[in-house]
Design a protein around this nucleic acid. Structure first.
Lengths: 247, 247
DNA sequence: TAGTGGTCTAGACCACTTG
DNA sequence: AAGTGGTCTAGACCACTAC
């Protein structure tokens, strides 16, 4: 059959048909043919087009679902992920409240300036950007200053934000990045550690001098896996709380 | 066909054939028919025995693999998990070393006694045990005391350990539980928070008074999902370091 | 070489969502 | 009612492991 002959025509070792298909589908997302939030063709149709059995195409799609690139909904279809919604740094903290609701935090912008890329950040972003936008803000919960945050994003990719006044910034940055800069954050990685706060930091957060601070350093990645944002958050380590599985 | 008629004979809603099979296989592990480390029959044989297609049986096995109950090895077979090997609390800390090797930590037993079950622990263990074995130890790295640990295990399930002299205790507890108490730890969950150390604690760890401490409270679960151990570890919060994905 | 899990096919039917 | 993903079948062949 056609499928069989085409398979023997490409006897690549170490690859599978569904693996190749996954790569092909991923390319179509990268190329922008299927945009975030849009439904892709039905798996039955894709199977026909690519000349493979349904199960094989399902397997290819499944790997992209596990990579969080696609989302499947029974009866509705398969769509490209809209990415993370953000605001998850608070998951590490109690802050008195039993549960921090989605809309509680508000942010006050302290600094917003264009800077030359610091040496330690040059290699983190793609294309070695020469300039970055640096934003510092203080996030409040129930009127109390709880979290200091620094955000670095590369220019000119995020230049739409330099023109945006500080008062117009949304609490959640990821949806704003998607809307104004056309950047979808699909994955992120947090690095946590504890250090004593500097005098200025503890003062800002209304804590005693030398109070231990928990630092969350986050790198955010777009749909292609490129780092598009570095963030550093600082808060009272005594409010830190985390539950995690052991494997 | 037989399969079809038997399916219509049990028109349970909300269940699937592979889901039922997974439950049946799980039962055979619980019953001890297939012991940890042993190979289970080939999926082709199981499919024959249960009268289902190969793919369906594969799907059933796959769910148990994702639950960490089974492990598959291409060409070798499918075996029941031997459980966690432990010693992973150090993954949260730097302690100067670039990487903490598997064999570096050594432990000194401070306390080992049978106690009446404290109220807050009664409901955590299965069968509300009346007595527990409490062990306190100090774990060293390169000769320095780095971590204080309290361990609670239920009696009489772990009574083999009460007869074991403190000097005979292994660094890694999970393999010892498996060997001496016939308890396999399959999963665990860590809860982390930061608090100031008490004077005695900071003295033991050779830290200054009021040094922030990171507390890791771990609950370990056996093959049936029952809690079989509670552990609380305390160490210098300034040595804490953790990298984790964001979803 | 025999036996295992992994891939793939070509269907059928079921369960869910939407107009 | 039409279209989607989810389940299931009954095979074939491939890739890996151990004897």
């Amino acid at each position: 059959m056609t499928a069989k002959s085409s398979r023997s025509a490409t006897p690549k070792r170490g690859t599978t048909r569904h693996g190749e298909l996954a790569a092909l589908l991923k390319q179509r997302v990268y190329a922008g043919e299927w945009k975030p939030g849009a439904l892709i063709p039905a798996e039955s149709e894709l199977a026909l087009v690519y000349g493979v059995a349904l199960g094989t195409m399902r397997q290819a799609i499944q790997t992209l679902v596990e990579e969080k690139l696609l989302l499947r909904h029974h009866g509705r279809g398969t769509m490209v992920s809209r990415g993370l919604t953000g605001n998850t740094i608070f998951r590490f903290f109690r802050f008195g409240a039993a549960l921090i609701s989605e809309d509680m935090p508000t942010a006050r912008i302290l600094v917003k300036e264009t800077i030359a890329t610091p040496e330690e950040l040059v290699t983190i972003f793609e294309n070695r950007p020469r300039k970055l936008l640096l934003v510092e803000r203080c996030r409040m919960i129930e009127g109390l200053p709880r979290l200091l945050e620094k955000i670095w994003v590369p220019l000119p990719a995020f230049s739409a934000l330099t023109r945006l006044p500080g008062t117009a910034w949304a609490d959640r940055l990821y949806p704003m990045y998607a809307q104004r800069c056309n950047v979808v954050v699909l994955k992120a990685s947090d690095h946590l550690h504890v250090r004593p706060m500097a005098a200025a930091e503890s003062a800002m957060l209304e804590l005693k001098r030398g109070n231990p601070g928990l630092v969350v350093r986050r790198r955010s990645f777009d749909i292609k896996g490129h780092c598009v944002e570095v963030r550093e958050a600082l808060a009272d380590a005594n409010e830190f709380e985390l539950e995690m599985p052991v494997y």
